[in-house]
Design a protein around this nucleic acid. Structure first.
Length: 339
DNA sequence: ATTCCATGAGAAT
DNA sequence: TTCTCCTGGAATC
């Protein structure tokens, strides 16, 4: 399932390939026919992510779209892109080594399975052959005839298909898929906490908002990081890894964590999120070079400090990694390091 | 072939 | 807390 980094990558792909184009919007599956009809034939004017929420603007202007398609992928939703796609340069460079290893199909997976050799549900610029990749790397936009069948037949339960003259995006399995009016978009943004990659406020203000909110809560910091009204975009993997990196006990109430530690936590999130947006993977053991970095890219087991490592020795202190349930989600942590 | 489980989150109990 | 949404790869039978 995608955490915030995946949704930002998807938003950038819509920005690079769909914004500015008139779109045919349909619901091949049939469960979004009314909403699709409302958007069909409009021009896509904006693409933005706030936390795990994707907001695609239709008509109006980029700053004030008439209607907004709001999508939340939930635990198994995914976007599939196909057609004559270009790849947003901000998410291209560091994914090349991953994408280049894969051949065979056309298109890219916004997020979802099939991307990693370990079955991890992380996105990548998957399945692009070497010649296509070279063109994309050079910044060329492909023509439809180079890509093959276009548009492809929808595969499986496609809730929404967004089709332009050159590209297509299919959405499957979302938790939320709805058309919002401007006031509803504002209400959504208002209930979400800060996101350092969202263009809605300055970095400094975002950090202050997070710190203020966490510092006055008696809830455990492990719960606060998962609360989308405290900070938008963190999920179960980033929660566990951020707390380990901070050597912080997940059970410590927010209001007993010193402010400078909250600020360090936020700044580490800013850093990990940026790495995630650029690479498409949750690389939480950063600073790796060469063969170690390659191993981390290839195998989840080499990618995290504590996530899904219960019972294995801590990489830092050797203590057996603990697993417990916190608010219905699995929490992984090291009782030796995190005090 | 069948069951399990997941990077989420709101509703129901 | 548990259920539900409802996809798909991995694990299990």
């Amino acid at each position: 399932m995608p955490e915030g980094h995946s949704v930002h990558r998807i938003a950038r792909q819509f920005g690079a390939n769909f914004v500015g184009s008139r779109a045919a919007v349909t619901s091949p599956q049939g469960r979004f026919e009314v909403g699709a009809a409302e958007l069909d034939g409009r021009t896509i004017t904006s693409s933005e992510a706030i936390g795990k929420h994707l907001l695609l603007g239709f008509d109006g202007t980029a700053a004030a779209p008439d209607r907004v398609l709001h999508v939340h992928l939930g635990i198994y939703g995914a976007w599939d892109f196909a057609g004559a796609i270009s790849v947003d340069p901000t998410i291209l460079a560091s994914t090349l080594a991953v994408g280049a290893a894969r051949t065979g199909q056309t298109g890219m997976r916004g997020v979802g399975g099939g991307a990693g050799t370990d079955g991890e549900h992380e996105d990548s610029i998957a399945s692009i052959g070497a010649p296509r990749l070279a063109r994309l790397r050079a910044g060329e936009r492909e023509t439809a005839s180079e890509v093959g069948d276009f548009p492809p037949e929808p595969v499986g339960q496609v809730r929404v298909r967004i089709l332009t003259a050159a590209a297509v995006a299919d959405l499957r399995g979302p938790t939320v898929c709805e058309v919002l009016e401007p006031a509803q978009v504002r209400a959504l943004a208002d209930r979400l906490g800060p996101d350092p990659e969202a263009p809605t406020e300055s970095r400094r203000r975002a950090e202050d908002r997070f710190v203020a909110r966490a510092a006055r809560s008696g809830q455990a910091i492990g719960q606060l990081l998962m609360d989308q009204s405290v900070v938008a975009g963190i999920g179960n993997v980033y929660r566990a890894e951020l707390l380990f990196r901070a050597r912080m006990d997940p059970h410590r109430p927010g209001n007993v964590v010193p402010e400078d530690e909250l600020r360090r936590l936020w700044r580490d999130w800013v850093k990990l999120l940026r790495i995630g947006v650029e690479t498409g993977q949750m690389l939480t053991i950063d600073g790796l070079r060469g063969a170690r970095r390659a191993a981390a890219l290839a195998n989840r087991a080499d990618r995290h400090w504590v996530y899904k490592r219960e019972g294995q020795p801590c990489r830092r202190c050797g203590t057996s990694i603990a697993l417990e349930t916190m608010q219905g989600r699995k929490l992984y942590w090291c009782s030796g390091c995190q005090l």
